[in-house]
Design a protein around this nucleic acid. Structure first.
Length: 833
RNA sequence: GGGCGAGUGGUGGAAUGGCAGACACGAAGGACUUAAAAUCCUUUGACCUUAAACGGUUGUGUGGGUUCGACUCCCACCUCGCCCACCA
């Protein structure tokens, strides 16, 4: 009788339908089992998925299926991060409405996820561009606004004068507009911010709670928050005596200050130069520096430029008069927007002083050396001893840092402060395809939040997309014109929308009650299900998305909306899929489409290859030629099981007694148990799916050489039962990786579906113990021989055996044994002279 | 410039102080076939020795160190990738 073929297409369709039918991934909140919230970063619906994207969802699916078999109540939801610029660009280019474009892509991607056999609780699907979702994004904005965590201020945007439109950073290429190539300028607009900087310390401190996060992600976040301790020193303007605070982390260099430099944006500049002879020149410089834009101004080899304001300031510590400059390298957003210039001990200041012929004054000497300002070729930034620093001379500069700071505080000339690099989160976008900011401007009442009862502020559907002009919403009169919620007078709506990172910083809360029309999330359910047990996504989100989500979670916690301080308990960041030396992406033109592979080899093959390609936390090179290898393995597994399809039911199912097994069957039984241990350990800790799969391949290779026959007499039956046990174990162990084929073969072996309703196999502790071990014998650290000995052999006995070995004898003959090193169960090294 | 990774056969990778190259891919040879595909078997880091087997030497980016023993730990350097970047 001809054997059944491995018809993966039919099998995969069958089981995908089955899982949906039996609600395998449907999560019932009321279940009493331990919960496991498994979350993959929800995708942006940009078009279609390629095999590189697949890695993320396949890993998530493996974990979810494994935890189901381990008996957890697993929640594995999915949704769509559906607002954003590409949809709007597509509208400008192709004339499709962003909503239509987005929903078309969602449909296509949903189909792809299904065909991968990736399971989700589709009843919980959320789509961030739907009003029933963004209503609550707006609600979060209102809560932050009510609690002074959202505010507005002027901030610069990239402005293309020729398109007269605002550009996102990624639309600026080499300082020019990506569309028309004209130089981008900076323009100030009033924009909305979230006060994430208020949470800088908490976000930093609580990194220590995140035990299940990779160290490198925590380090990246800590660096991004960028806490630095320093001193605010109050310089005084000559003449007016007005205070000009400067921030420094190096108060020990205070006596070496030879100038002070302001950011071009510094508010004091205008009042200083107005009416002065250099006004025109200075304001022209400021204008130029500001239009340089951040891109150019912060470039690696940016030229340091400055201009003298004509004013002097007084160094509070010694009343020295130094010139006040403006420097394009000084940032208004960091510290106080004014820095003290110490050319002798800061490289940037050194270069600046050389360019503008400002004096250099050394105040720290390296031990045993003397620095002379005239001969210095670069700034000295190391540790040393204070000189030219009055009372502090002779002190180590590290001590002087503290001493000078204390001195300044005592005299009321400054204050020790902590500064963070983290800046407030600018959430305004001058775009259509985002959640409208729920704010109304009234001539009498000012800025008025939209009342909760009037949410959502709906995006108008009828809209024109042009490559030019301000925010498209500003042109829709019916949207802009409204009435003030307070006084009912005619008023105007805010026309900016929110950064899409706002949408994605709370979606994991919405999954818990996705259809609730009365509240954004159910506090009780949030407290039950959060934190997310396992979050899986790309390392490119290590900073922004993960920090914003942490911030929103903390803010909601402080406002008592949820009882959880940190959203994600364990984080897994998978590596990129590389093809031909570059990240797989549409723009690089190196994408591999899953459809072709699925048609030719099936989804299980693609899953297996993706998992086998390398450790998932590392980048991996995709090689199409490797795919048939994965398929070959599945085919072999198929043949092996199906070959005996008729026999499985005929043999009894009593416990196997290992001691009664013939040697070969015993070895297979032992290896099967060792494989259970190996795979379970891999899934629980290291996630090295590649070596997990390799160990199953090894097991199957050995089973192959264990010529099984369909049982006819009693002795054969015993061997056949070991074979059946091993094959069943392989199916259970492989089920999370390649679920379709395992379901089908599980059924072929005489079981009722689903394989996922079975318990994860456990290994027999006695069975994994080897009786004999092979010992490596080295002479002078070179491998010279091997012997096989019982595991429990004593060191003395082992040494005796080793010394009897012929090859050992020939190597140590005529030499003196200096020492013998014995590593139990592994190796013996004889050192001779 | 700062931070974080990574460098192992023709390729993806394995080994985290103890036999380097597991498991795959590819390649070469063979079996089956009218033929091809599929499948199965054998070989496969380099070099030396040998009729063959056995054997030997060498080998994990470079140079040093620690150790009986180093891909693995320490120091210095080179190269590549990612993230950030004039942060006072």
């Amino acid at each position: 009788m001809a054997q059944r073929e491995y018809n993966f297409t039919d099998i995969e369709t069958k089981w995908q339908g089955y899982w949906e039918g039996c609600c395998l991934f449907h999560t019932d909140d009321s279940k009493k089992k331990d919960k496991f919230y498994c979350l993959v970063m929800f995708p942006y619906p940009s078009g279609t998925l390629h095999v590189g994207h697949g890695r993320n969802y396949i890993i998530g699916d493996v974990v979810a299926r494994y935890k189901i078999m381990k008996g957890y109540n697993v929640l594995s939801p999915i949704g769509w991060d559906a607002f954003g610029l590409p949809a709007e660009n597509a509208a400008i280019k192709g004339g499709t409405h962003p909503a239509a474009w987005t929903h078309k892509n969602i449909k296509a991607m949903k189909h792809q996820l299904r065909r991968w056999g990736v399971g989700y609780d589709w009843d919980r699907e959320v789509t961030s561009c739907n009003p029933d979702y963004y209503k609550w994004t707006q609600w979060i904005f209102l809560k932050l606004y009510e609690n002074d965590l959202a505010y507005k201020k002027k901030a610069a945007v990239n402005w293309c004068p020729s398109c007269s439109t605002v550009l996102a950073n990624e639309q600026v290429v080499d300082g020019c507009c990506e569309r028309c190539d004209s130089p981008v300028r900076q323009r100030d607009l009033v924009q909305w911010f979230f006060r994430i900087s208020d949470y800088a310390q908490k976000l930093l401190d609580d990194l220590s709670l995140l035990e299940g996060w990779p160290e490198r992600v925590k380090t990246m976040q800590a660096n991004w928050i960028g806490r630095s301790e320093g001193v605010r020193i109050d310089f005084r303007l000559e003449g007016s005596g007005e205070i000009l605070p400067c921030f420094t982390t190096r108060p020990d260099t205070l006596y070496g200050v030879t100038f002070v430099s302001l950011a071009p944006e510094h508010p004091v500049i205008e009042q200083l130069v107005t009416g002065s002879p250099c006004e025109g020149e200075v304001m022209a410089f400021v204008e130029r520096a500001r239009n340089q834009g951040m891109v150019e101004r912060t470039a690696e080899d940016a030229v340091k430029e400055g201009i003298f304001t004509g004013t002097y300031v007084i160094n509070p510590v010694n009343n020295t008069k130094v010139p006040l400059w403006i420097g394009n390298y000084v940032l208004m957003e960091y510290g106080t927007g004014a820095v003290m210039g110490v050319p002798a001990h800061d490289q940037r200041d050194f270069l600046f002083s050389k360019k503008y012929h400002l004096p250099v004054k050394a105040v720290i000497q390296p031990e045993g050396e003397s620095l002379y300002a005239e001969t210095m070729k670069e700034a000295f930034t190391g540790e040393g001893v204070q000189v030219n620093s009055e009372a502090f001379n002779g002190m180590l500069n590290t001590r002087a840092m503290v001493a000078i700071a204390e001195h300044l505080e005592m005299k009321g000339l400054g204050k020790r402060t902590v500064t963070y690099r983290l800046r407030d989160w600018l959430i305004s976008r001058q775009r259509y395809w985002g959640a409208p900011i729920p704010i109304i401007y009234c001539e009498t009442c000012g800025t008025v939040p939209v009342p909760e009862s009037q949410l959502p502020v709906l995006l108008p559907e009828e809209i024109e997309f042009l490559p030019q002009g301000m925010n498209p919403l500003a042109k829709i009169d019916s949207f802009v014109n409204t009435t003030c919620p307070k006084c009912a007078a005619p008023a105007k709506r805010e026309v900016d929308t929110m950064d899409t990172f706002v949408d994605s910083s709370w979606y994991f809360l919405r999954y818990l009650s996705p259809k609730d029309n009365n509240q954004p999330f159910d506090k009780k359910k949030v407290n039950e299900w959060l934190p997310v047990d396992q979050y899986i996504g790309g390392v490119e989100h290590a900073i922004l998305h993960l920090l914003y989500s942490r911030f929103i979670t903390k803010a909601l916690y402080d406002l008592d909306f949820i009882g959880c301080k940190e959203p994600f308990h364990h984080l897994f960041t998978q590596g990129m899929i590389i093809k031909n030396g570059a990240k797989m992406s549409k723009s690089k033109g190196n994408v591999v489409s899953p459809e072709v592979l699925i048609e030719k080899y099936g989804a299980d093959t693609q899953r297996l290859y993706t998992l086998f390609i390398g450790p998932p936390q590392k980048d991996a090179e995709w090689n199409d030629r490797g795919v048939p290898g994965a398929h070959r393995f599945l085919n072999r597994l198929w043949q092996k099981v199906v070959e005996f399809e008729e026999s499985y039911a005929k043999v009894g199912r009593t416990q196997i007694d290992m001691q009664k097994l013939p040697p070969k069957a015993k070895a297979i039984y032992r290896q099967t148990n060792q494989t259970i241990k190996k795979i379970t350990d891999d899934l629980d800790t290291s996630w090295h799916f590649n070596t997990a799969i390799a160990s199953i391949m090894e097991l199957l290779n050995n089973i192959d050489s264990f010529k099984v026959v369909a049982p006819r007499n009693t002795g054969e039956e015993l061997e056949f039962r070991v074979f059946r046990y091993s094959m069943e174990t392989i199916l259970l162990l492989m089920a999370p990786f390649v679920p379709h084929i395992c379901e089908e073969l599980w059924e072929a072996m005489g079981h009722k579906p689903s394989i996922f309703h079975n318990k994860w196999p456990e290994y027999d502790k006695d069975a994994i113990q080897e009786e004999e071990v092979e010992i490596v014998i080295q002479v002078n650290s070179k491998v010279r021989s091997h012997i096989s000995v019982p595991v429990d052999i004593s060191d003395k006995k082992l040494k005796e055996c080793v010394m009897k070995d012929e090859r050992v004898i020939s190597y140590i003959e005529g030499k003196t044994v200096v020492k013998t090193i014995i590593i139990p169960k592994k190796l013996v090294n004889i050192v001779v002279k």
